[in-house]
């Protein structure tokens, strides 16, 4: 039993920290790829910029500035500092529900990323700066895992993490494998960059070896059961957490756990061959749509329900 507003905030903390981590990683990969003055390097940088939603990836917008905007631009609703600020704002509102260890990790990260020294640190060594943010976000998740009770509140937070992750990865795969740029990516450096954007390079190598193919990457990031950033993994967690959260409750047709179960089943029983035949965009779109549906259903079921329906007996 927890306050509806608190559950909602915990869910959003999960979403915002996941978003901050993903975008920091995209910025970092993009900066790295632009160091290579080859066509492949340019292609990789363009992919990254398309993945962050840069409207003119081929334009003459300086990639360093693009990365800096991605981190610091307060006008951008998904920039890293905006996500961190919102995560922390939500954490402040549920300060009584998260442990001190967890709170201090997030607060420290927020203070560092928004402090007066932050832009200077980025300008003088952007890769280091981004790497530290990512490492701090891992520490935050680790502190939450190690110190918070793994009950309802924790599950709401993880639901946010995995829902956001499924959406972000499907968007990344969409940019890489279903749009115009995706046709025939076979360059080694470009493929490595895609894997790096999903933090998947080393785990991928252990499964498929250094033999890089677009088809294998798609298979790995869509269907791998063990890699925590594959869509299949994320939907399995969504299914698991939402099943727990819905257990013992009277929930009608809009039950979010049913939607999550259905999405997870679809990923369980689809193969990469089906995807190759029909094109990746169909399944990626349905992942995005289903995630939006789960998000809505959660809000209506746990947070904004009509009062007269839920009076205690």
């Amino acid at each position: 039993m927890m306050l509806a507003r608190v559950a909602d905030s915990l869910y959003w903390i999960g979403r915002y920290v996941e978003r901050a981590e993903h975008l920091s990683r995209l910025a970092s990969v993009m900066l790295n790829a632009t160091l290579d003055r080859t066509d492949a390097g340019t292609q990789a940088a363009q992919l990254a910029r398309a993945a962050i939603g840069d409207p003119e990836p081929a334009g003459d917008h300086n990639p360093f500035e693009a990365a800096r905007d991605l981190v610091f631009d307060r006008e951008r609703s998904d920039s890293v500092v905006v996500s961190l600020s919102r995560a922390r704002e939500n954490a402040r509102q549920v300060r009584d529900q998260i442990t001190t260890e967890t709170w201090e990790r997030l607060n420290l990260l927020f203070l560092r990323a928004t402090g007066p020294q932050a832009e200077h640190a980025f300008n003088s060594n952007a890769p280091d700066f981004l790497q530290e943010i990512i490492a701090d976000l891992h520490l935050f998740k680790g502190a939450a895992d190690a110190t918070m009770s793994h009950g309802e509140g924790y599950r709401f937070m993880l639901t946010g993490v995995h829902l956001e992750r499924a959406q972000l990865i499907s968007r990344l795969l969409g940019v890489c494998f279903s749009g115009a740029q995706g046709q025939g990516i076979d360059d080694h450096l470009a493929l490595v960059s895609i894997l790096r954007m999903a933090c998947a390079l080393e785990p991928y190598l252990r499964v498929y070896t250094a033999d890089l193919h677009a088809r294998n990457i798609l298979e790995f990031l869509l269907f791998d059961e063990e890699f925590p950033r594959s869509i299949r993994y994320a939907t399995a967690r969504l299914d698991e957490h939402l099943t727990h959260l819905s257990t013992g409750r009277e929930i009608g047709r809009g039950d979010p756990s049913r939607l999550a179960g259905r999405l997870n089943a679809r990923l369980c029983y689809t193969d990469v061959e089906d995807v190759e035949a029909g094109g990746a965009s169909a399944i990626l779109n349905s992942v995005e749509l289903d995630c939006t549906g789960i998000h809505q259903a959660m809000f209506e079921t746990f947070v904004a329900y009509p009062l007269e329906m839920r009076l205690p007996a």
């Binding site: 039993m1 306050l3 309802e152 947070v303 009076l311």
Partner: peptide
Amino acid sequence: RDLAVHDDLVYMRTTAGLR
């Protein structure tokens, strides 16, 4: 906004309904 009053009883909105 987390509280509601019904028949002179005060409730809070939880994820599992009113308490």
